[in-house]
Simulated scan of single mutants.
Amino acid sequence: MTRHEPAALPAFRIGDADPECRYPIFVGTKQDRFIGHVFRWHKPWYAVPASGKLAGTEQRFTHPAPGDENPDPDDAGPARPAREQAIRWLLKAVADREADHHITPVHDGWPLPPTPVSTTLLHPRMVDTPTNRKRAAEVITSLAALCWQPIGGYPGSDNPWMVRCLLHAESAWEGPLYWSHLRGRNRQLPSTYRHKGCLPDAEVRARVPAYQA
């Protein structure tokens, strides 16, 4: 059997994450055609195609162990990080028109509608239990003392959480961070470095209530 040569992967653009920390992937001449999105939950990354036979399903990719060989026969070299694997899976499904799960780029489809939730305290993937609600409320209170505002529901300490810095009234910085980093280590307050372009150490300490306790 003759093995076909893999199709060249299209150029792509990663868009800004939405409140659930889902990243859209775009291709096309203007890189404005949506093919799906990727997101991280715990350590794995997931790819979700926008069209085709597998549209809306989650394809899971894990980080390779040191020395692991690349499982993709069309991708020479060492195994790729999970995020790259997820994006590459979407791109290959676009490039290979004969693939059973071929993706046809679409001009709409992003932003995605919010995932229905029973409580805004929790990320949609978090199980809604009294314990999780209580923990989320505690974390959000601590987050406020550090002058951060949650944009999405609490995802647990080791998953990305979309938050807004409250130290900039005119141009608030927004982005995904981790509560495990924001809360500090060993009962110590976190570093005063918040994000690129934020206030210097002295001003952060003067304006953030947590540093004045």
Rank of each mutant, 00 (worst) to 15 (best):
C165D: 15
I14D: 03
L54V: 09
S142I: 03
A144I: 09
G153K: 04
W45I: 00
I151L: 15
M126V: 13
H4V: 08
A76L: 10
L146A: 04
N132V: 06
T119H: 05
A136E: 11
D128V: 12
D74Y: 07
D74N: 15
S118Q: 14
H168R: 08
D16P: 01
L166R: 15
A99K: 10
R60F: 02
H42T: 14
H101Q: 11
A11W: 05
R185W: 12
F39K: 07
A82D: 00
G28D: 12
G109D: 02
T129M: 11
W161F: 07
G152C: 09
H181T: 14
A213P: 03
K53Y: 07
E69G: 10
L91S: 00
L189M: 12
A93P: 01
W148Q: 04
V139Q: 07
D75N: 06
A210T: 05
I87A: 00
A202D: 15
P49C: 10
R185F: 11
P114I: 06
D72N: 14
P150Q: 02
P49Q: 08
D100Y: 08
V208T: 15
C147T: 03
F61C: 02
E58H: 15
R185H: 13
A136P: 03
T62V: 13
G28C: 12
Q59N: 14
V48D: 06
F39W: 13
P113Y: 10
H181C: 07
R207S: 09
H102C: 14
P155R: 07
P73F: 11
T129W: 05
P155V: 06
A82E: 01
A169K: 15
H195T: 07
W179V: 09
M1T: 09
A55C: 04
Q31A: 11
P71R: 08
R133L: 07
E84T: 08
R80V: 00
A65T: 10
R135G: 01
I35Q: 00
P64H: 04
L91A: 01
A11P: 04
P44M: 01
V38H: 03
G184C: 04
I25G: 01
A17Q: 08
P155D: 03
V94D: 00
V204K: 10
P78V: 05
M1F: 09
P111V: 06
R187T: 07
P113M: 06
R83M: 09
R83Q: 13
E174S: 09
P130V: 11
T141M: 02
F39G: 04
D32P: 02
V139Y: 05
A11G: 12
